[in-house]
Design a protein around this nucleic acid. Sequence first.
RNA 1: GCCGGGAUGGUGGAAUCGGUAGACACGAGGGACUUAAAAUCCCUUUCUAGCAAUAGAGUGCGGGUUCGAUUCCCGCUCUCGGCACCA
Length: 985
Amino acid sequence: MKQEFDPKAFEKKWQDYWQENGTYSTNFESSKPKKYILDMFPYPSGAGLHVGHPRGYIGTDVYSRFQRMKGFEVLHPMGFDAFGLPAEEYALKMKTTPQLSVSQNIQRYKQQLEIMGVDYDWSNMVSTTDEQFYKWTQWIFLECYKKGLAYESNEPINWCPSCKTGLANEDLNSDGTCERCGTLVEKKPLRQWVLKITDYADKLLTGLDTLPLWPDFVKESQRNWIGKSEGSEFVFKLVDANGNGLEESLTVFTTRADTLFGVTYVVVAPEHALVTNSAIVNKHEVLGYQESAFKKNEIERSNQTLEKTGVKVDGVFAVHPATGEHIPVYVADYVIGSYGTGAVMGVPAHDERDFAFAKKYNIPVKKVVFIENGDRRENEEFRNGGCGVIFDPATQKYAVAKWNDDGRVLLFAGGVDDGEDVHDGVLREVKEESGLYDIKHFEWVDTAYAHYFNKAKNVNRVARAECYLAILNSADAQEVHREPHENFELVWMSAQEILNHWIEKNDSGLHHYIHFFKQAVARAIELGHDAVSSSKVFAANAFCDDGIVELESGVNGITSEEARIKITEQFGKKVVNYKIRDWTFSRQRYWGEPIPLVFDANHKAYPLHMSELPVTLPNVEFYEPTGTGESPLANISEWMNVEGYVAEDGSVKTIKEGESAPTGVAVQKFTRESNTMPGWAGSSWYYIRYIDMNNDNEFISKEREQKWLPVDMYVGGVEHATRHLIYARFWHKVLFDLGFVHTEEPFTVLKNQGLIMASDGRKMSKRWANVVNPDDVIAMFGADAFRMFELFIAPFDQTTPWQDDGVVGTRRFLERVHKLMIADHKEGEESAEVLKALHKSIKKLTDGIENFAFNTCVSDLMITLKVLEKQEDGVTVEAKKIFAQLLAPMAPHATEEWWRMLGEETSIHNSAWPQYDEKYLVDDEMTIAVQINGKVRATVVIAADADEAAVRELVYAQEAVQKYTTGVEIKKEMYIPGKIYTIVI
RNA sequence: GCCGGGAUGGUGGAAUCGGUAGACACGAGGGACUUAAAAUCCCUUUCUAGCAAUAGAGUGCGGGUUCGAUUCCCGCUCUCGGCACCA
């Protein structure tokens, strides 16, 4: 053993030793309990790994080493996801074939992982591009096909003109550009295979509730992506300009059935079938609009700030399902053709988008949902009433009642007598209370329901209050006779002053006044009377909250929730909608798994027989995408065209050279499906294959599946929160329903490693020239120091910047450990101090590694090392061994070296994880902080079993305590055992 | 806009069944060793005042509960992520 700590001298040696001796190989038939620990396998790009990538691999490496030492049979495999666009693009750029470049990239990745000393068993590695692997990817596709989950479609799909392939929704950025190249995708009708993931939408959603050990944000992202929305559908019959019924009708989807009576128009997406209806009078205009809408790209269409556009459909009217009213029909591209029914009911009063549209096209706004203020109470007495917002155009001020007792400012308001018309009643009250009789315009603005307690009468009340806008002709006031309890006077204020006053009061009882007032002012501005109020604060808008719905105008209403149920039952039906779309599974590219189907002369599709798998990719020189909607494979006639026959099970068997069909079976010509699968296919099930890599007969044997699934710990990047993790869960659930796997979910625990940013705060990227290469760090500091720093840098799941000069800290630590290890052993009994430090450390590390709290584990070992280092007569060999074992998962090379040096003959990584003994953990004395008025003024050290009286005596013996307590009255004191003695003076 | 995280020294971060804030590490400053430098070792390092003892302030901001709040409650700000004209 050298005196110097020299990682270069032993790292490679042990890496070779571990591989040669199968130190980490998995015994699948072991009787030990299993732990399946999995990394999201990398996509081997040409750039290699930077220091951010291995963070997750190091985390699972530590975790799997720990579990192995704890006695589990561990499966911690690694592989490569290498089909798909990026690999093909890279090969094209390098003027080579993807077969070659992928195998080179895999070699490079493998090397980089190897020098980190990660505990993969490389003899158990998968690549999605291996024929023996994708044979089973094709098999799973066929199972989906046979179950009716794969269908051929010619619907317009996302087409990337640059990548020359169709893409799934999941392959797009949120702005509608291609995730690969940033090009705007087009909608293009294309023959394609689609997987019915929507059949599993509900299972994918409810399954999330069975995954308590997944990060919440991942589950939330998936819920968003699936986008379940429960609502109602209503059918609007259509009539022509003469009121004659048309054959077609219009079905709309809404989550706000309670607003049905507020519908003043209906609107369809440009894609909607109605657009081509023969009854339309302004066909030219409507089709022109459709064309211009199709030309808009996703960015333009999805830009909410963009003004809404649309065209009225002349000659066709919709019949309101409840009122029978004939209402106008529009085409507008703010309606999404692919969601719901592609048609919506327009409720300007209660939907912001409809409001904006209605304002632009002068469509009436009809309010049917009214704000509800305060909590519902028992035995409420119903009252009708209202209030007035009084505006004097001459002074541009509003009249309000200022109460003399508390200075509050309120609207002029009053109750309406039984039998009296509300409009007239409120007008009368407003005049009488304000004394302002010369009103030229009096208009209803809104209604509210307010719950309150009337102190004077001692009753709970709910008031239906109508708010009116009153525009004065003149502000001459008549003298008002007020009752003693009407202790207020009229004051004039600007709209902003009144609003500020109410906002300051922060009185929930005023909420509906603020709601009323804003609308009244907005209306005054709209009518051209108020020219000074800020239009931003007083902008007219839609009321989109739930409230009270009046099914008949002016009649006491029901809640939105009740109304949705009632209206849906009466006029429509309940419907559930999902945002998630079926999975576009065809790629018009070379580098992917061929879809194992063939077509006969009539383009009837047949699955290939199991014996035909794998359908291998032909090796070719040219594989550029064609852009025609077929993959380059379509041009390889010797591959495309096969002779075969339909077997008994309906699948097709091809006839190879020297073979012939069974007698009596008709031989036909077939053409292969030329599309290939998307890059996500192989990664949707690879975790299953690791368990039974070399099984030629099944994708996994029943026994191994039963024993090894599900994955116990799955670790990877946050970027896979939706796509990969939805696809994999989807296939797993399909395999579950087919009886091939026994669990409904594939991954029990999911953890995401945080990103490591460059030290400049940006993402590490060639583009910014800020990439730190792990090979360089390892060359300088050694693999163990690198690994430890990756663990130490921050909590595992937290994004954090890389620090170039940080690795030196863990390197120094290892050098100090080395010094300790090579020092002479202490003979005889270990000191109590060392035992206590070690056992505390065992406890801390055991909990810490289990919880992925690696950063605090590293720091804990540093603290423990300090205790060991300061022992003047050294530490025993047993203590050194325990310390090495604790460190072994994080620093596998150095600890292996020390372990052997200390006389062990088998690998430290197969040794048993140390157990702590509670008896070493108890302290014999405790430190109590003394707080005086909440501030720590002293600490006392006393025997751990001291009682309160003893503590108190010691506390008051402290000079620092006496300084504060002498001659002062002690108001309160208490002792929180083992922690705090607190005194209040 | 809706939903979900986060905010602590010069830096990365530690401590949350409420109980001595700043562990551990980097960096910085000082010292030892050395002809010198590197490496190593020791000391200091939240801010303000003070030679010091010490005092005051302090966990994004404003309130509240409590003997005591980084931790719990209410109201905000900023920031990162997911979804977004999804009716």
